[in-house]
């Protein structure tokens, strides 16, 4: 009873000018395991949403459903009013607007940095090579890594690779960016450089959904922080209220655990 009130009361905080991502009554099962329970979430244009929660809570699964890396069984997901389903044309349109940055970077090790970035523009969007390379160099400079353009992924540090991954995501000029624990695989001293890039993207007005444990980032940048546990959204609030006045017991417990150090 208590928790339902929380979600309803925070709806006034949403920026409804243009719904970019809509999840309505989304349910997902892995076999018998109910992994996403009745997810309702709207993300407006330019909103920065951070999703937090213990591991296994379904956060990664949820954002993977948005660009159909995972499929859902019940409910509707729409991206810029296009439904996320088995229609291949829809998928193409959605994936050209939604970019994803992974926990383990997933750069293509057999291609150089610049080739990693020009791959999609050249082969999916049929851009001429010169244009693709110019765009690529622009974004490599944007993330401060232009001098590594001809190196290969395995020659770069983790932080550098993740910045390249972000540049690669930016090359298709997406409206929406999904981040799946982008700093969890990095050594502590490299987390800062990646977060800096993400903050500058947020300032540019990109719509971002971030699954992350970096609460400092959430406090600084997020419009909304969402707490997920056991497959459902438990609490949703602006960062101030979320961290300083958690309402649900589960969130209180979670915050105690991660802020203990």
């Amino acid at each position: 009873m208590q928790e339902k009130k929380i979600i309803e009361s925070s709806s006034q905080l949403r920026d409804l000018s243009e719904p970019m991502i809509e999840l309505n009554g989304v349910n997902k099962w892995y076999g018998d395991f109910h992994v996403l329970k009745d997810i309702n979430l709207n993300v407006g244009k330019g909103e920065i949403v951070v999703v937090a929660g213990p591991s296994g809570s379904g956060k990664s699964t949820m954002i993977r459903c948005i660009n159909r890396l995972e499929e859902y069984q019940e409910g509707v997901i729409k991206v810029k009013n296009i439904e996320v389903n088995a229609d291949v044309k829809n998928l193409r349109d959605i994936r050209s607007n939604v970019a994803m940055v992974f926990q383990h970077f997933n750069l293509f090790p057999h291609l150089s940095i610049i080739d990693n970035l020009t791959l999609a523009p050249m082969w999916v969007y049929n851009k001429p090579k010169k244009e693709a390379r110019d765009t690529a160099m622009h974004y490599l400079e944007r993330v401060n890594i232009a001098e590594q353009a001809d190196k290969f992924p395995n020659q770069l540090s983790g932080g550098q690779q993740q910045r390249v991954a972000i540049a690669r995501a930016l090359c298709k000029s997406p409206d929406i960016m999904l981040f799946d624990e982008p700093t969890s695989a990095l050594d502590p001293e490299m987390i800062g450089e990646v977060l800096d890039v993400m903050i500058s993207l947020a300032k540019e007005g990109k719509t971002m959904v971030c699954v992350t444990h970096e609460m400092g980032f959430a406090r600084k940048v997020a419009d909304r922080v969402i707490f997920m546990d056991e497959g459902q959204i438990v609490e949703e609030n602006d960062p101030e209220t979320f961290f300083n006045n958690p309402e649900s017991d589960r969130l209180k417990l979670f915050l105690e655990q991660i802020l203990a150090h």
Partner: peptide, 13 residues
Amino acid sequence: PKGQYEAADAMGL
């Protein structure tokens, strides 16, 4: 690694 398949998918290939 599965991540390579995912990255390629996510890029729309």
